[in-house]
């Protein structure tokens, strides 16, 4: 199983080298993190790094889900509590940040835990059923190891709504 997985990984990297057009890439890498009882997948292309421990500076006049701004090696980045963004109760002791760079907009996302990086073939990603349309989610898929369902985070919506 693991040998096969490595094989696939290698192939994807090859693809990345030569085929950058989205349509031709058959699978993408996702970083899966946990928020409350949800597992959310974030396109690994947008992930800058994962931070643990930081000091946030409160920035007034922002929506409550923006905890403030923090200093990542001289770069000022806003921090979003994704629990509050999804309308869930905030975590008291959360300090794990996934820093994303989506079209040159940087954002630190406060998450409960980071699980793993996974390759997911594009065809496995299903559209979300219309009647249960989720906030900030552009698709979903069952994880190959059968451990559950992953929701695909819609960065565009996350940043612009």
């Amino acid at each position: 199983m693991s040998a096969m997985k490595e094989d696939v990984l290698f192939q994807v990297q090859d693809d990345d080298l030569f085929l950058t057009d989205e349509d031709t890439v058959e699978s993408r890498k996702y970083l899966i993190f946990v928020v409350d009882d949800l597992r959310i997948g974030l396109d690994a292309e947008y992930v800058v790094e994962i931070l643990n421990g930081y000091t946030v500076t409160y920035l007034p006049m922002m929506p409550d889900y923006i905890r403030g701004i923090f200093n990542m090696r001289g770069q000022i980045i806003p921090m979003m509590d994704i629990r509050l963004r999804l309308g869930k109760a905030p975590l008291e002791e959360g300090n794990l940040l996934v820093v994303v760079n989506y079209n040159n907009t940087h954002l630190g996302i406060l998450v409960d835990a980071v699980e793993l990086m996974l390759d997911i073939p594009n065809e496995l990603i299903m559209p979300i059923p219309a009647q249960s349309a989720q906030k900030l989610v552009s698709g979903m898929c069952s994880l190959p190891d059968g451990s559950g369902t992953m929701l695909v985070l819609d960065c565009d919506q996350l940043l612009h709504e």
Partner: peptide, 10 residues
């Protein structure tokens, strides 16, 4: 300020 923050017109 970060670009994202500017969306909120601070």
């Amino acid at each position: 300020l970060p670009t994202y923050v500017n969306n909120f017109d601070v």
